[in-house]
Amino acid sequence: MDQISQQDSPSITPRMRAAAFSVHIFTALGAGVALLALLEAVREHWSAMFAWLGVALVIDAVDGPIARRLDVVRVLPNWSGEVLDLVVDFVTYVFVPAYAITASGLLLPLAAPLLGVGIAVTGALYFADRRMKSPDNHFRGFPGLWNVAAFYLFLLHPSPALSSLGVIVLIVATFVPFHVVHPVRVVRLRWLTLLLIAVWAVLLIFTLASDFDVGAPVTISLCAIAAYVVASDAAIRLVRSFHP
């Protein structure tokens, strides 16, 4: 059955189409939120920028389950939720954070524009890579989470040289085939991952409310959770290699 006949099927009612399209509108709202985040970044209101990027993150986390529940792919076959999601993700995960990292003064002045371009270009390439997820739903390489990388740069505030080096490492890591945990879709230790992500979200909100003026316990906890997300798969594979 072709797309038109599917969409005109008597089993698909106007109410179902309206509900399905509302999901696409909800997803696209993330692009509007990204614009609000960019406006705050231009004003150097960094905590407000990250707050809006956090709202975009929530939208991205919620829209997929709603779309699957409403069977949006079948009800509206002429609209690609996958493409829409990638467009919005690029703006919120890559483009706005790239501006913040470049314009914040965290990088070496001469290197900042080049590294900003590097973030945007490699981020775009990553979102176009059909191998970005492994069969077990891990991300392959650094998953273009420049919003999170920017948050940690603002939190830790290393020297410009060290920050620039860190950005270079992440740009290169985009194309390195190591695995990073997807917080929701990876089944292994999902309960632990979700628990840690919930703790991370609470600490992040506290950090933004405090305008990044937090003590060592909060900073250490945030870094430990990030280390788990990035390195847990490699650690588990290493342990299994010694104990098959």
Results as ranks from 00 to 15, higher is better:
216 A>F: 12
80 S>H: 11
75 V>C: 06
137 N>Q: 14
239 V>T: 09
203 L>T: 02
123 G>S: 08
118 G>C: 12
115 L>E: 09
42 V>K: 08
41 A>G: 15
15 R>G: 15
171 I>R: 07
155 L>H: 06
148 V>F: 07
125 L>Y: 11
19 A>P: 00
179 H>C: 01
201 A>V: 04
31 A>P: 00
17 R>G: 01
176 V>K: 09
22 S>E: 00
178 F>G: 02
205 I>R: 01
149 A>T: 05
74 R>F: 06
165 L>F: 13
226 A>G: 11
229 V>N: 01
8 D>S: 13
157 H>E: 12
113 P>M: 10
183 P>A: 10
235 A>F: 14
178 F>S: 05
144 G>F: 09
98 A>E: 03
93 Y>I: 03
213 D>C: 03
123 G>W: 07
242 F>K: 14
101 I>D: 00
67 A>W: 03
27 T>E: 03
195 L>N: 03
39 L>F: 10
29 L>I: 11
88 V>G: 06
217 P>I: 05
237 R>Y: 00
153 L>T: 00
77 P>I: 10
174 T>A: 15
72 V>Y: 01
32 G>W: 02
85 D>Y: 04
14 P>F: 06
116 G>H: 04
117 V>S: 12
215 G>M: 08
132 M>F: 12
149 A>L: 13
121 V>M: 08
86 L>K: 14
206 F>G: 09
22 S>N: 07
97 P>I: 07
102 T>I: 02
42 V>P: 00
28 A>V: 04
230 V>N: 02
243 H>K: 12
225 I>M: 08
53 L>A: 03
32 G>I: 02
223 C>Q: 08
85 D>G: 09
42 V>S: 02
119 I>M: 06
101 I>F: 02
10 P>Q: 11
168 I>E: 00
84 L>A: 13
55 V>C: 02
239 V>Y: 15
86 L>R: 13
129 D>N: 15
95 F>H: 08
80 S>N: 12
226 A>E: 07
5 S>A: 15
158 P>E: 01
228 Y>M: 06
87 V>Q: 05
130 R>I: 14
223 C>M: 15
156 L>V: 15
56 A>D: 04
22 S>P: 04
100 A>Y: 01
157 H>W: 09
124 A>Y: 13
124 A>P: 02
220 I>Y: 12
1 M>V: 14
197 I>S: 08
156 L>G: 01
178 F>R: 13
22 S>K: 10
44 E>F: 00
14 P>S: 10
54 G>S: 11
190 R>S: 14
213 D>K: 11
131 R>Q: 13
232 S>Y: 06
181 V>R: 12
89 D>K: 02
45 H>L: 11
175 F>V: 11
129 D>I: 08
117 V>C: 14
164 S>L: 03
3 Q>D: 13
105 G>Q: 05
28 A>P: 00
226 A>T: 07
127 F>H: 10
